[in-house]
Every structure is written in C-alpha cells, then in structure tokens.
Design a protein around this nucleic acid. Structure first.
Lengths: 262, 262
DNA sequence: CGTAAGATTGAATTAATTCAAGCTCCGTGG
DNA sequence: CCACGGAGCTTGAATTAATTCAATCTTACG
C-alpha cells in the first residue's frame, strides 16, 4: 500500500549493482520471475521452481505506469492479469451515483484484475498512486500453460483468487461491524503487516493514498479519517506527519481496537 | 437466498414424477450433474457437455443438511467444495468479538467454500437456513481432472471464484456508500433477480433468513432492517407478511433507491 | 395453551456526517 | 526568490441517520 520511501523501493528493485539488497544479481534480472524480488509474494511464490522457469518463457511484458494513470478501466476487455512489480495501486468501482468507491490498495507482488475472469471484462478500474511498474500476464497463454500440464499454475492462480475473497471478507467484516477508529486501526495494522512481509518497517511507512481514498475504502468521510488519525496521535499510538506514519505501536493499537487484520 | 415456497422448491427438485417441471425426468436423475435442474447456474454451466459427463464420473456425494446444521466450520480442513443443490445457505465469519458476521446467502447452483483454497482450511462457516442438500465436490479429484487435460474445468472454477469476488465488490459498495434503505433495497433486488434466474417469481418470494441475519449482511441492526421494511410497505413498494415478500415493485424500488444489483 | 424467539415500534442517545472555516504544504509563475 | 493559489488536510459546530434501550406484539412450536 505504501513504502517507507519511494526512492528506497526503486533502488531495491531496479539497481542490480547494489549487491546485498538483491539476492540474484543476474545481469538481466528484472525481466524474469525467477529473479524478481517480489516472486515470493507473487504468483511464482505458489509454484515449483520448474514451473517458474516455464512461466518465464512467456516473457511477461513490463509496463511503466505513471502516478494517476490507469492500468485498466472497468468495462475494458480482459486479456491480461497484472502483477504489481513496484509502486502502489488502487482498485476502484464506479458507484451508481458516479462516486468512486475504492475496493483495495495493492502492493508489489499482488495481482490486479482478478474480478475480470467472471465476465471477460474488467469489473473494476486500477490506477497507480505513484509511479510504478506492472507485469502484464497474458491470461490466454497462461491457460495454455495449464493445458500443457502445468496444472499447478492453476493451483497458484486459484489460491490467489481465493485469497482475494478472504481479503474482501475481512473488509466486509470491518465495514459491517466496526466503528470509525476500529476501521482505521485495522487498516493501519493491515498496511503495517504487509509492509513487514515485504521487508520494510512495520512501524514507520508512507501512506501513498489520500485521506479521501482511505475513507472510501473504509466507508468513512475524509473528516472522520482525519479525526481518527489525530485521536491515535493524541493517544500516543503513532505519529502522523502528512502521509508519513511513524512510531506506530502495533501492539497497543491491536489491544485497544481488537480487530483482526487480513 | 430464498424461495417462493419451500414446498414448491422441494417438489421441483425431488419429485421426478412431476413431468413438465423437470426437464430430464431420467430415473436416477438427481445424482448426475448432466440432469440436475441447477446445472445451468452451477459449475457444469461453465463447461462443455463432454466435460460435464466427465464431472459426473466423479460421482459427487450428496449430503442432506437440516435447517441450522453446518456444512463446514471455519478452521475445518478443506477437502470439498459444496454446491448448493436445494435449500438456502448462509456463509458467515466469526468477528473478533465473537459476533457472527454474515457474508452471504447462497441459493441452489452456488458454490460454498471458495475461500478455503487460499489456506487449505475453511475461512468461513456455512450452515443451512432450511432443510436442503449439497453436492460435495472432492477438490483433489477435481484437480486431477484438470491435470488430465480438463483445463476447462479450471476455467469454470476460476470464473466462479472471480464471480464471488465481483459479488463481494458489490456488497462492499453497498456497505461503504449506501444508507439503510438503499442497502435493503439493493438486497431485495438482488434476491429478486436471483429468484428470477432460477425460474421463480421476482416479485413474490420467501425470505429464509431472520431480520438479524439480513442486518448482519448489510451492516445494520435488526431494528433498522425492520423499520426499512415497514417504510417500503408504507410507500407501497411491497407487502411484507413475516418472511414473505409480495407485490414487490422492482422498477420503482430501483428508481427510488438507485442501487446496482449484483 | 403457554412460552420463547423473532419482529415491530417508539423514544433517547450517539456516532458519524455535513457544513463551514482555516491551515499547511507544494508547485507554478511573476 | 518569493508570492500566490489550490489541493489536501484538520478542526469545530450543527445536524442527522442509525443505534441502543425498552416495551409490546406475533407466531411458531412444544
């Protein structure tokens, strides 16, 4: 959802010269799943090494996406799934009244477009909250891979689909049964945990999205989000400086707002 | 979610003698997907006839589930997906504070347990709102089918997973951005539409769940659900008699509560 | 027929929204 | 370089929608 620093993140991913930060400093590293720093959290993380090599033979195209640009728009014909390679992305729906409803924020390794399989058209819109890159996975080719005996590719993908369902269950739980501060606490703990998994600090990070976008995800207004953040700061649970969160006391946050995180 | 009448529903499904209501009155009809009245809305609906026959060779076990009984409980080891064959089922999560949070109601043809693929354990609990039957689909065997070249089984299943994601998107949209009456209107229109797809009346049906369960799904209290229903009745949008809804004016409901339905 | 669970309705309370004002930071152009 | 302007954020006060509390009613079921 957010990175402790955009510069740092870019460095880890795109400067193969920096040994120690990248485990496989192969010359052409960045274009292959096998050597992608996100592979553990991404589709290949679900596959045996043999199949990852096969996946790489598909040569996924990488696409730069500038902040604010869309990866796909709802209604677009579905041809590719997108894996976030770097940056933070926002998935959203158009509400009947025209408003935009955020359904999730996506960090490196996560897939975009899983709701498109149902109807062959994208049901949501994905856009970049900061400059980033996605890998375009041609769905048809991926399926041919399944046909050619790579049934475990299917396993990996369906597990990611299922994971998305679980993620949304948690969001529903939050929307259906928690008050404003519990929602925000759950959100922050979720971000914290996902940052940690990716090797970043769990107590200090940058929110890449606006208060309004957080509110949209959590079913709250901007003002309520802002007030809740201020309240947390007043209680000494964290420090807020614009979009930078620091000194977050995850443990106290958890016990005071007994909320499950993804 | 609900049926225009339990008796009627049972008859259609389990009395092969009643010609005209059942399109394939084969002697042993009920045990085969190929002749199941729900097949169009279920997994086989996504598959070519050849594969449906193959699916049938797996001989899914049917399981009677009495009202109130569980199909599976969250935390259970995942081995089967369940297709609703008859009856109405409720999927729910245990909230951190112990309350039960309903995540959906499931009608014949819909799958239960799709959230279990992610972790190999059921993430939710499914129980029957009335006596009914489910087909237990052994997931491992289904996967072997994919391995043996039935890649379209994969397609069908992933489309159903994706559809579940879309369904939950709509629910989130509802929870995040609508007021009480809009939520209930969206819920009723959703039920109405699903009833219609299954060949029942879209303007008259029985709700199989309590007001509390509807409230849980919609993020509202029992009282609020009750008040909203009364308001609809006062406006002449429908008639309520306990759990029976009749004379529902879908069109007016839609225009007065401009809400998208699944 | 009596009881308990579910549903309805009203009144009081509260959490969150809406409305409104002002602040801060950032980029742009004078 | 600094001022200007706007977007995003914060804070306060008023309003409102929904919850909570409470009482009553209905009906399904033993």
């Amino acid at each position: 959802m957010l990175t402790s620093s955009p510069v740092q993140m870019a460095e880890i991913r795109f400067m193969p010269g920096r040994a120690g930060e990248q485990r496989f400093p192969a010359p052409n590293a960045a274009t292959q799943c096998a050597t992608c720093p996100q592979r553990a959290h991404c589709l290949p993380g679900e596959l045996e090494p043999r199949l990852v090599r096969r996946l790489d033979e598909l040569h996924f195209a990488r696409r730069r996406v500038r902040a604010g640009q869309k990866v796909f728009h709802h209604g677009d014909r579905f041809a590719f799934l997108y894996a976030v390679r770097s940056g933070t992305f926002k998935a959203s729906l158009a509400a009947p009244d025209g408003r935009e409803l955020v359904t999730g924020f996506h960090l490196p390794g996560e897939l975009l477009g899983l709701d498109a399989l149902a109807a062959g058209r994208h049901a949501s819109t994905a856009s970049a909250l900061e400059d980033g890159e996605v890998c375009a996975i041609p769905y048809r080719q991926l399926m041919e891979e399944v046909g050619a005996g790579g049934a475990s590719v299917y396993h990996g993908l369906s597990r990611m689909l299922s994971r998305e369902i679980v993620r949304e269950h948690h969001l529903m739980l939050l929307l259906g049964g928690m008050n404003a501060e519990e929602r925000l606490a759950a959100f922050l703990m979720n971000v914290s945990q996902r940052m940690q998994v990716r090797g970043y600090s769990s107590t200090e990070f940058n929110l890449r999205m606006s208060r309004a976008e957080i509110g949209s995800l959590l079913g709250l207004t901007v003002e309520t989000v802002s007030r809740a953040l201020s309240a947390f700061q007043r209680q000494g649970l964290l420090r807020v400086d614009r979009r930078h969160i620091s000194a977050m006391d995850v443990q106290r946050l958890r016990q005071e707002y007994a909320a499950t995180v993804q």
